[in-house]
Design a protein around this nucleic acid. Structure first.
Length: 413
RNA sequence: GCGGGAGUCGUCAAGCGGUCAAGACCUCGGAUUGUGGUUCCGAUAUGCGUGGGUUCGAAUCCCAUCUCCCGCCCCA
């Protein structure tokens, strides 16, 4: 197969037989998010590169090695690797801070990351996500998490686990980082290469290293003490406790996971993930958290905010396949003009109808009808002469002949 | 970016150095000249991811490359 006949690595065609799954996810997103007052927003797929380096954070892998970036008329442009930065940009640029808080937005669409593809990970993938601006109270955190679980339930996904954690605010997190670095300093040379990098870049990520030798070091009592200490300040603690209380009252089951550290720099306080055991190693279907500093950091009025994103491919892989939809009717006739006219008539009435464009033999047309439609609509000599149609129910095998005017009523039954 | 496995018709697959590359499903045509989903017959890979090499001979061996899968990393 020549190069031009292959999709690019890490990209996929979404084929007709799977599109109904995508529609289902999109339609449920619209339905559920609307119930909570979220409005859809569509932002461009390309943005100025700096939006991501400043927004997502230039210590992250996403920005450092995974962006599709190119130059055009002296500007550095990037295919969005995620959509929070873009939505925040739109929020600021369109003056949405003047709107009455909360401003609740949701989006869906393709994202691009130059990564090594594997199960549940593509270079072009799709996310549905939400962002809520202007509410610092823990009710916002709880509402967003609750909505995420309800959305997943509406797709029939029940055996998922919600994990939550609090990263504290910049102040208390900084203190924690320093304490962590201090206690790890003596072992720095024993840590794996990645951890040594993380030590400088993002010490919080050290905690979920999978290398055995690192794990052993982290098990040392003096380190465990720091890891398990409740480093977050009183205000953050209060916020976190309230979030958990609301979740408890709303019946949302969750697991607290102190190791849960999201990879994007902008998060603070509440972070959460929703995981499935049926996804292999890329097991998160949803990830999100609070990012109170981002709007200000990008040049807007400081505005608290919280959101999440879900991987649509991962969602769809968890949903049982839907049966493809059949046509309402397939017109069987050896007289193309009559078939054509009748098909159009029915289409105008809102029915999905096809007829045989090649005028094959009668029995072949019936066979085709049985494959693609619920009813065969037979227009033979007699029917044409009497302006009627024979309707054959292809599941039951029954057949009746009616006046064409009554056909639509019959099909709707 | 780093490890491991795999690539034979649209799909699932047999073949593992020596005729014409099994078979099944799908698709198409016929048996059936106005009635299908059962049955029967027939068609469909000068080709075995791609490019080199070894050999009298290669889908089968070797090298490279691409892609997919699994793990690491990272994340949705």
């Amino acid at each position: 197969m020549s190069e031009i006949l292959k999709v690019l690595k890490g990209t996929k065609d979404i084929l007709p037989q799977d599109v109904n799954m995508w529609h289902l996810v999109e339609q449920k997103a619209d339905e559920i998010f609307s119930k909570y007052g979220f409005k859809e927003i569509r932002t461009p797929i390309i943005e100025v590169t700096e939006l991501f380096s400043r927004g997502v954070g230039d210590t992250t892998d996403i920005v450092n090695k995974e962006m599709y970036t190119f130059e055009k008329s002296d500007r550095s442009i990037t295919l969005r690797p995620e959509n929070t930065a873009g939505v925040v940009r739109a929020y600021i640029e369109n003056g949405m801070s003047r709107l009455s808080a909360p401003v609740k937005l949701w989006y869906k669409g393709p994202m691009f990351r130059y990564e090594r593809p594997q199960a549940g990970r593509q270079r072009q993938f799709h996310q549905v996500g939400v962002e809520m601006f202007g509410i610092k109270q823990p009710t916002a955190d709880a509402e967003v998490i609750l909505m995420a679980t309800n959305f997943l339930k509406s797709l029939g996904l029940n055996d998922l686990e919600v994990e939550i954690n609090s990263l504290g605010c910049p102040k208390c997190r900084e203190e924690f980082k320093n304490r962590l670095k201090e206690v790890l300093k003596p072992y720095l040379s024993e840590l794996c290469e990645d951890c040594q990098k993380r030590y400088e870049k993002n010490p919080l990520r050290l905690l979920d290293c999978k290398v055995e030798s690192c794990k052993k070091i982290f098990e040392k009592p003096e380190i465990q003490e720091v890891v398990n200490s409740d480093f977050i300040c009183e205000e953050c603690e209060e916020h976190y406790t309230a979030v958990k209380l609301y979740l408890d009252r709303m019946g949302v089951k969750y697991i607290e996971n102190k190791q849960l550290v999201r990879g994007l720099d902008y998060y603070n306080r509440t972070v959460f993930e929703i995981k499935s055991n049926n996804l292999g190693s890329q097991n998160a279907v949803c990830g999100g958290g609070r990012y109170d500093g981002l709007v200000g950091q990008l040049g807007g009025e400081p505005t608290p905010a919280i959101g999440f994103a879900m991987g649509m491919e991962r969602l769809i892989s968890l949903i049982p396949k839907l049966e493809p939809k059949k046509l309402d009717g397939y017109i069987v006739s050896e007289h193309p003009v009559d078939a054509f006219l009748f098909a159009e008539e029915l289409r105008h009435e809102g029915l999905n109808v096809e007829f045989d464009l090649t005028t094959k033999k009668f029995s072949k047309q019936i066979e085709k009808a049985a494959k693609v439609a619920k009813y065969a609509l037979i227009l033979g000599e007699d029917e044409i002469a009497n302006h009627c149609v024979s309707i054959k129910n292809l599941e039951k095998g029954t057949q009746i002949t009616v006046d064409r005017i009554d056909c639509i009523k019959m099909l709707e039954l």
